[in-house]
Simulated scan of single mutants.
Amino acid sequence: MKKSSSHLPAFQHFILMYKKQSLLIFISVYCCFCTLAGFADQPLSPIWSLEFSPDGKTLAVGKYQWVELWDLETQRVIHVYEPHVGDVRCLKFSATDKASPLRLYAGSGIPAQSGEIRIWDVASEELIKSFEIHADTVESIALSPNNKTLLTASMDELSAVIDINLLENTEELIDKQAKWLTQHVGRVLCTLYHPNGTYFVTGSEDKTIKVWNPETFNVLVNFDANDDAVYSLAYSVDENVIVSGSADNAVRTWRVAPAGGDEEIPVSQNSSDMTGALVREYNGHQGAVYSVDAAFVSLRQNNQAAMIASGSADTSVIIWNIRSGNRFRTFDESTDAVYAVKFSPDGRFVAAGGRDGKVRLWNLRRRALTHEF
């Protein structure tokens, strides 16, 4: 019969306890070493936002309290912008303008406490401006095509329209000079500027999408055909439609036009003369659609099409043909919810990031995963 350690002679009992203690010390030291060396299975910070630089050579990645700038050719981090307040929920590069330096705008915040915007000079890597603007996290930001106006969306149920020139040249409190939009009755989750600046758009937890006149700040069109919160917005230049992703698992496209006509909307158009309609609904996701983007994709010679990318809580990224409504491809390499999707400027790649903390890039022509970091 095997004896317990309590029945061993005193000396043998001491030796046994010494060996046990040594083993515990060894295990503790080994675990510490593994953690420091990066061998331990540590959870990665979720990726909340992605943004390609205008030249498509770098990708900005928003995480908890910092933004990483990745060189896509070498797949290495070339700079880290930190520290931010809370999760960096949204990113936006300024529009290409040879006369102005390239800037990176980042929105973050602490839930139910504050919403912050930071503006970085990309070339010098210097922080240009940091300011609090909301009473809750900043979920989305958009820039007017001329880089003169910044639009925000926040969990505090408000959107702010900020004159960037005043932002940089005044010591006055930012919230005093901003134009506040209060027509939503739920948290405002996404924003969008029309590529020509003819209108801007906001989407909300209240299930509506509102199209605004950028001069009068009147609501031109109110879309209310969503069955749940609107999480994301994009614009297809090729099809002239707004794209939305919603908590009801659907992707939708919407068209805005002057009543009785198909031409583009003048900036000064009166709201009573505007009309809008749902164009198409794309069903295929089995979870909330957290992010959408749109681009003109060249698949191969003489085969080009306007596409939508959508990322979902169901862990998939789906590429849709906007006009036909058909599913072009489903990418399922992500292991958890996808919070951000983005087409590269040339339409060759789509990037995605989410809860599993990894960025993935797929080559659309090859229909294959090419980068993961």
Rank of each mutant, 00 (worst) to 15 (best):
C34W: 02
C34S: 08
S244P: 06
A340L: 08
D224F: 03
M1W: 11
T35D: 10
V221W: 08
T335C: 02
R365W: 01
L173R: 14
R367C: 13
N226Q: 14
H79L: 00
G260M: 04
G260P: 05
G245T: 11
P214E: 01
Q21K: 07
E171M: 10
Q21Y: 12
T35R: 13
A309K: 10
Q301C: 01
H194T: 04
N321H: 10
L158I: 03
A178R: 13
S268W: 01
Q21V: 08
P83L: 03
W180A: 01
V289K: 12
H13E: 10
G276D: 04
N240M: 08
E82A: 15
F200Q: 10
I15C: 13
Y339S: 07
L299K: 04
Y282I: 05
F349H: 10
K2I: 07
Q12W: 10
G38C: 15
E205V: 09
A247H: 15
D97F: 00
V267D: 00
V122G: 03
S154A: 15
K176P: 02
N249M: 11
L173M: 12
A250V: 04
I242E: 05
G203I: 06
L23Y: 03
N226G: 07
K92C: 12
T152W: 00
D71R: 10
G287D: 00
A10R: 12
D41T: 09
E205M: 15
S140H: 09
S45L: 06
A106I: 04
R300M: 13
T170A: 06
K358E: 09
A313P: 00
A340H: 07
L24P: 00
F131E: 11
Q183S: 14
C190N: 04
